[in-house]
Amino acid sequence: MRVLVVDDSALMRKHLGSVLQGHELAMARNGREALELVETFCPDVITLDINMPEMDGLTTLSMIMIKRPTPVVMVSSLTERGALATLEALNLGAVDFVAKPGGSISVNLINVADEIRAKVEAAGAARLRRRGTSGVAARPSDAPAASVRREPAAVRTSVSIDFAAPGGPSLVLVGVSTGGPRTLEDVLPKLPADFAGAVIVAQHMPSNFTGPLAERMNKVSALDVAELQRPTPLKPGTVLIARGGADVVVSRRGKELYAIPCPASEQHAWHPSVERLVQSAKECCNPEQLTCVMLTGMGNDGAQAMTEVKEAGGRTIAESESTAVVFGMPADLIRRRGASVVLPSDEIADQLVGWVGQVKEEQDGFDKA
């Protein structure tokens, strides 16, 4: 595989080249050199620094996607500014990102070498998604504009829901990894303000990135979207994005269900852990109240737990290969026969509304028999 490494730091280029040994490599010191090599070297994957002189990473990425669309893995700092720039890069078409290590590059890069290799190799097989598309067709013209939020529904209040009541709304659990931020924009903004389910999203990300991601999703969604920072009661019409680098579990407190942040479990490889989230929800809810969605990502996090939900009477959606940036997680759910339906990302919200419905005048709670 041909890999183009773009970074203004000679030391960083050297160490990335060492990590990616075995691939055919080319090096660029800035965006202008990168654009030339995109045409002459024809890379299969590009690693791209965000902060560079002459032409920054975002500008370079935009030009790459115009001149010769190529899978790009961004190399980003873990600062708030770096997180915002990385989310913008993912929206522009980057497949994934790796966190640029602080301190001694030669020492700290060793700690993420396996992650870098895995993400670059996954990017080589990734499906590129252009901004404004879901991988198959453009977003419908009646989708909410990116800069406009609809007014919240009147039913959304701070009143607690009686979770001991019979029946009740769905708890929607979303697992997503590589390619997730862009894919979530195909799903969350299409859910109506009076959506009858409470939504929890486990997106594999470092802790500095999920806050900006939640803010971005909140701006384009009719639902209230927030990063989970403390034990929070679950309410219809809200979306909680689990804090990166940690886990989230669902727990019952009297008549209410809570989403509770907790330290990352050593028993799970990815965080926030989709598997742990779904397993905890199974212990608190009737299976028929659970709706699980498996979106793009490497690996198999959550596939076993979602399969068990389906087998117990719950409902599950796997994103189809036609739109998944990386088909690993949904493919594993399908392989286990754990998907109730398989859908492209731009059809998932409609399926959720069809299954879960919209808030009635009186909303029942989550019940566990």
Rank of each mutant, 00 (worst) to 15 (best):
V174P: 04
A146N: 13
P206A: 14
S147F: 04
A214M: 10
A122T: 12
V155T: 12
N108F: 12
F195W: 04
A198Q: 08
V112I: 15
T157C: 09
S141T: 15
N108E: 13
L173K: 05
G180A: 11
T178E: 01
L223D: 03
P181A: 11
P192S: 08
R156F: 01
T157P: 01
S147C: 09
E215P: 08
I116E: 01
K190A: 09
V136Q: 08
P140S: 14
G180S: 11
G211L: 15
T133K: 06
V155R: 10
T183W: 07
A125L: 10
N111P: 04
R182W: 07
K219G: 12
N208H: 15
R156Q: 05
N218R: 13
A198S: 14
G167F: 10
P189S: 01
E121T: 02
K119C: 01
P140N: 11
P181S: 11
D224P: 08
L109D: 02
T183V: 13
V159S: 05
G135L: 06
S147M: 02
G135R: 07
N111R: 11
A126W: 12
N108D: 13
I110R: 03
T178H: 03
S177G: 12
P169Y: 03
S170Y: 04
M205F: 04
I110K: 15
A137H: 06
V159C: 07
S221L: 14
A164V: 13
D162M: 12
G168Y: 09
D142C: 12
R150V: 06
R149C: 07
G167N: 11
A202I: 08
S221E: 00
D142A: 11
K190W: 07
A154I: 06
D162N: 07
A202W: 08
F209I: 06
S106L: 03
V199D: 03
V201F: 05
R156T: 05
R149E: 05
S177E: 00
R130I: 06
V201T: 03
R130Y: 03
S106R: 03
V148G: 01
T183A: 10
L171F: 09
P212M: 08
T133D: 05
A123D: 10
V136Y: 07
T133M: 03
H204I: 02
V220M: 04
S147K: 07
A123V: 00
K119D: 11
N218Y: 10
A153H: 12
V187K: 11
D186H: 15
E151Y: 04
A125I: 00
L128Y: 14
T178D: 06
S170P: 04
P206E: 15
N108Y: 12
A153D: 08
P206L: 14
G135Q: 08
A122C: 10
L213A: 12
S147P: 00
R127L: 09
G179V: 02
S141F: 13
L109V: 03
A143K: 03
A165P: 07
V112Y: 05
P206C: 11
V201E: 07
V112C: 09
G211M: 15
A126D: 05
G211V: 15
L109Y: 03
R149K: 15
V148E: 13
I200T: 07
G124N: 09
L109Q: 08
N111W: 09
G211R: 15
K190S: 10
D186E: 14
T133P: 04
A154G: 00
A153M: 01
V225Y: 02
V112F: 06
G179E: 06
L191A: 09
S207T: 14
K119Q: 08
A138S: 12
G124M: 09
S177M: 07
V148T: 13
K190R: 09
L184F: 10
